[in-house]
Every structure is written in C-alpha cells, then in structure tokens.
Design a protein around this nucleic acid. Structure first.
Length: 557
DNA sequence: TATAAGGAGTAGA
DNA sequence: TCTACTCCTTATA
C-alpha cells in the first residue's frame, strides 16, 4: 500500500510503499508529482512513518497548539532545533524564535574533529539520557560497540530534535557527552557535503555568534551528491554554504527544489501500483488533476475519479486517500488481533491486567530489538499504562518512546470507528488484474504495520500456525532473537534491513524444521529468497555480498 | 567448492 | 491460486 504522508515541519512528503516488485506503472505520474500541491495532503497524517513509530503526541489526536516534542523526520537537509524543546517555545518553522533561543548546538562547534573516525566506537551505554541533553543527531548506521565505519556515503540517518527513535534500538548513535560529541559527530560532519562548508564557516566566524546565519543550525545528511562534491572541489567556500542556507527548511522561506527532483518520494509512491492491484484500486490518471481528460473508463472507475476530482475541487483530497488510510487501519487491526491472540490479551489495552501489560511490553521490546524491559517498571494494570505519557515511558525504558508510540497505535486501532473514513475497498477479485495492471505483476504479501508475532524459532512445531509462515517472516524471527540465533544470522544494518546469514546450513535446518521439510537446504532456501526479489520483499544489497540480503521497505520495519 | 541466479515443474494448503 | 519446494543449469568468486 502507499501512504502519503506529510511531515509536520517540513515540506517533505514521505511515502510508505509496498515494494513495487519491479512493476511498470501504467501511466506516467512524473508530471503530476512535479506539480502536485502537497498542501492538499492532510497536515496531520496519522500514518506518516514518524507518527506511526516515533511521534508524540498520539497520531490520532489533534496536535496540541504548542507541541513539546517535534515529530521525527528524515531529512538530508540542514535543520535546526533547540537544545531542549520543553524549555522553549521554539518552533522549527519559526526562524524568528530560533534566533532568540540561546542554546543551539550546531553539528560540531569544534575544529578538532577526529580524523580517524572509523576507529571510534558507538557508545555502549544507554544513549537516551544524553540525547535529551545533546539533541543533535543520532544515526542509525552502526551497532553498539561497532566501529562507525558503517557510516558510509549514501547512508540515511534519522534525525530527531528530541526524543525520536528509530524502530530498532540497534545502531542508533548518540553523542554521550560533550566531549564525545566533539569527536564523534565530526565524523558525520566531515561526510556531509555541506558540512565541510560549515566547518569552514565555523572556523572563520565562530559558531556561537548569534548573528551567524548558521547559528542554531545543524547539518545533517551523509548522502553525498556528486554535483555537490564537485562544487566543493571547485569552490569550497561559497557554493555549498549557499546550498546549505537555501535548503534550510524554514517555512515560508523555502525555495522549491527543481522539478526534476521535486517530490521524488511522492513520485515513487505514485508510481507504485502494487497496492492498487492488491486492493483493486484503480490507479488514478494523474493528468486529471491538471486538465481533466476523461478517457474510456468503466463506469465504476469513472465514478471513482469523479469523486476524486470533486474532492480536489472542494479541497477535500483527504477523502481521496481515505481508501489507503482505511486499508492501513484494517491491516493494523489484523496485526493487533493476531498479536493479541497469540499473547492471550485483550485488544483493548485498558482491559489489560498487569500480566498482560508485561507480556505486551516484552513482546514489543523484542520486536523492536529493545533492551529487556525491567519487569518492576511495568507492574501496572492496563489503565495505568494507557495513562502514561511518553516521558513516563522513557523514564521506564531507555527507548520507551518506541513502546509509547506502539501503544498509541494499539489504542488507535480500536479506539474509535469514526477514524474510519467512509470508504470500503472493493473486494479483491480477479478483476484486480484487469485494466492498467500488468500481467507480470504479482500480488504481494502485505507487510506488517505491526510486526508479526514470532513463534519460537528454535522450537520446531508441527502446528498449522507454525508451518504457515513465510520465509521472510521466519528470517525476521531469527534476527529478532540474536541471543538464540545470532550465531547463524544477524543484522548488519538493522535500519536498512540488511542481514547476513552466518551459518547457511543451520538457518536452512531451522527453516526445514519449521516447515517440516527435513530435506531443506540452503540451496532451496536461497531459491525461495530469490523469489522475493521480484516480489519486492527482499533483495541483494547494492554491493552484492555472499549470504547478505536486504529486506525491502517496508518489510525491513 | 560454495554461492548466486533463475527456469520449470510439483506439492500442499 | 499462491507460496514454497525441488531439481536443474549456468555463472562467478
């Protein structure tokens, strides 16, 4: 499915897509994507990745007037933020306030950046208490205790001004002290194309000057763009700085990106037709948004598009994405149902007893690779859990924000039927493959918006539920239990879904046990993995390595 | 030699 | 009908 999401703070639209399985889109959406008015999208999209996993407050509640925490967002652009949002009325979109706020941390105010950053280690200790004090950056690039060598150009990091999280605790990097902050992020900084420029500027002007145009800004983004690198080589002092300033996402001051790059993610989302086939949703002829060209369409399709156009005219595009949102809710509920059935708990958290609470906390922690939760911290009935704030969660667990966000999803799944927009997908039928959908396209297994409940991967069973499992789910199970299975399969980069099979024989044996296929071997298992390539569930990494595979988004979540 | 890739037929739910 | 299994050939490190 495709979820169109809008970041609350930036003019950045993030889709979540089911892998397209190499589909060829039935029509060219690029023109539409370039001219698409993002303002038509809902401001408070409850299904944005940040809202689903990271944000506070609840994605299903209207945002407070002055949120104390900002949504987490992906960005390759410079951003700025206050040291502590709780102490400030600062808003990222308000540059005037930012000027008056005294406690900004530019990425690296020091010049003595560590040159041999590859030897630096990600702190082993809990980073969260520090992240609030130094809300600069954290990058999902390396595992605790692992060198930062994984911080390669092209890596995408997750930046949070405050309290945001990746879905996994693995690999997040936080500066754990000002000293460490001095040394470590400089490495990141040195990888940023704008960072070099920034460094030059800091050296020249000093970062603490409130009059500095960079005061309060932090660079981020280790995705090196060839053009920028070339410019840096030619003229290191001005062009990149200009780019840094021009791309700074100040609301109302932004320069739209060139059309060729405009709304790249949106375009990718629009070109993804897999959900359309799966749920029998006809892809929109996006040219209709400009000059309406009614071509031959079946009666239903005409109605649907008329509705869509009417919605556009009335400024009600939100309704047009209602099918997608509703499908997301449906999927969420299915996942919640499935998990609750396995855990033997109610779907309503307020009905949980203490044991249910602990069961859910443990399960969620496992799913997201978090530390083993301290049982005494979660000894409470469901209503008490529901009443906890994100801060309460964070106090009880180093990455309590994830737990809190998941609970919000849990609550939202059954909280209010009014959430549902009045639309129902047509029943998936053979018709789904008609029309613009290519015959080459294949139906996909829907990804879990909430991870599927793992059964014990090391305990073979012959039950139907145990054998009815997809290989990719099984592999994620193994990956989720590094204590038991870390010797045969492990994450290389959790955020990207890259993993390595360390013991192909053992993994194949485990898979064979699970599926009651004693003759299973790696040759057969890998054949199944390769079948996932064209389904967009898994792929080889960019630099193909033996026994290294990668989950496609969103299966990597 | 092990792994990767993919074609093709089959089995089971 | 779909997913996975099985067997196969060819290519590559």
């Amino acid at each position: 499915m495709v979820l169109f999401t809008r970041n609350n703070d930036m003019d950045e639209t993030m889709p979540q897509t089911v892998p397209s399985a190499g589909f060829t889109p039935p029509c060219d959406y690029s023109a539409f994507a370039d001219s698409f008015d993002l303002s038509l999208l809902p401001e408070n999209d409850p299904f944005s990745p940040s809202n689903l996993f990271y944000s506070s407050p609840s994605p299903f509640e209207p945002p407070p007037e002055k949120p104390k925490s900002y949504p987490t967002f992906y960005t390759e652009k410079p951003v700025f933020y206050p040291e502590d949002p709780e102490k400030s009325d600062f808003y990222p979109e308000d540059p005037e306030k930012s000027k008056s706020y005294p406690n900004f941390y530019p990425l690296s105010p020091h010049e003595d950046l560590a040159p041999d950053f590859q030897t630096l280690l990600v702190p082993e200790d809990s980073p969260d208490s520090f992240s609030k004090s130094y809300p600069s950056i954290y990058l999902d690039v390396a595992s605790p205790g692992q060198p930062l060598a994984a911080l390669s150009p092209g890596s995408q990091g997750l930046l949070s001004p405050y309290g945001g999280y990746r879905q996994s605790g693995e690999g997040n990097f936080y500066p754990s002290s000002p000293e460490q902050y001095t040394a470590s992020p400089g490495s990141v900084y040195s990888r940023s194309p704008c960072g070099e420029e920034f460094l030059q500027y800091v050296k020249k002007e000093g970062y603490s000057s409130s009059s500095s145009p960079l005061h309060g800004f932090s660079t981020f983004g280790i995705k090196e763009e060839e053009g920028i690198k070339e410019e840096l080589t030619e003229e290191p002092d001005s062009r990149c700085l200009r780019q840094l300033l021009e791309t700074t996402p100040i609301r109302g001051q932004q320069t739209p990106p060139p059309p060729s790059q405009n709304h790249k993610l949106l375009r990718e989302a629009l070109e993804d037709t897999s959900f359309q086939k799966r749920f029998n949703v006809r892809p929109l002829d996006l040219g209709l948004l400009g000059e309406v060209k009614m071509e031959e369409m079946e009666e239903k399709e005409v109605d649907a598009e008329e509705d869509y156009l009417r919605g556009c005219e009335e400024g009600m595009v939100q309704e047009s994405i209602a099918p997608v949102l509703n499908l997301a809710i449906e999927q969420m509920r299915k996942d919640v149902d499935s998990t609750c059935a396995t855990l033997g708990i109610s779907t309503d958290p307020s009905q949980w007893n203490s044991a249910s609470v602990l069961s859910w906390i443990r399960w969620t922690s496992q799913q997201f690779g978090l530390e083993e939760p301290a049982a005494d911290q979660w000894d409470m009935p469901g209503p008490a859990l529901v009443a906890l704030s994100e801060e309460d969660f964070t106090r009880r667990a180093s990455q309590g924000g994830i737990l809190h966000a998941q609970l919000e999803i849990w609550k939202a799944a059954y909280s209010d039927d009014d959430l549902r927009i009045q639309w129902r997908p047509e029943t998936t039928s053979s018709n789904a493959s008609s029309g613009d959908i290519s015959e080459d396209e294949e139906e996909e297994t829907p990804p879990p918006s909430v991870p599927s409940v793992p059964s014990e991967p090391t305990k073979p069973t012959t039950s139907r539920s145990a054998t009815h499992i997809h290989l990719w789910q099984f592999l994620k199970e193994l990956l989720a239990t590094p204590q038991a299975n870390g010797s045969c399969i492990r994450w290389l980069d959790r955020s990207k879904g890259i993993f390595k099979i360390e013991d192909s024989v053992k993994v194949a044996k485990l898979w064979g046990k699970r599926k009651n296929r004693p003759a299973m071997n790696y040759d057969k298992l890998s054949r199944s993995i390769r079948q996932y390539y064209k389904k967009g569930i898994m792929k080889k990494t960019e630099r193909s390595q033996r026994l290294v595979y990668q989950f496609c988004h969103p299966y990597n979540l």
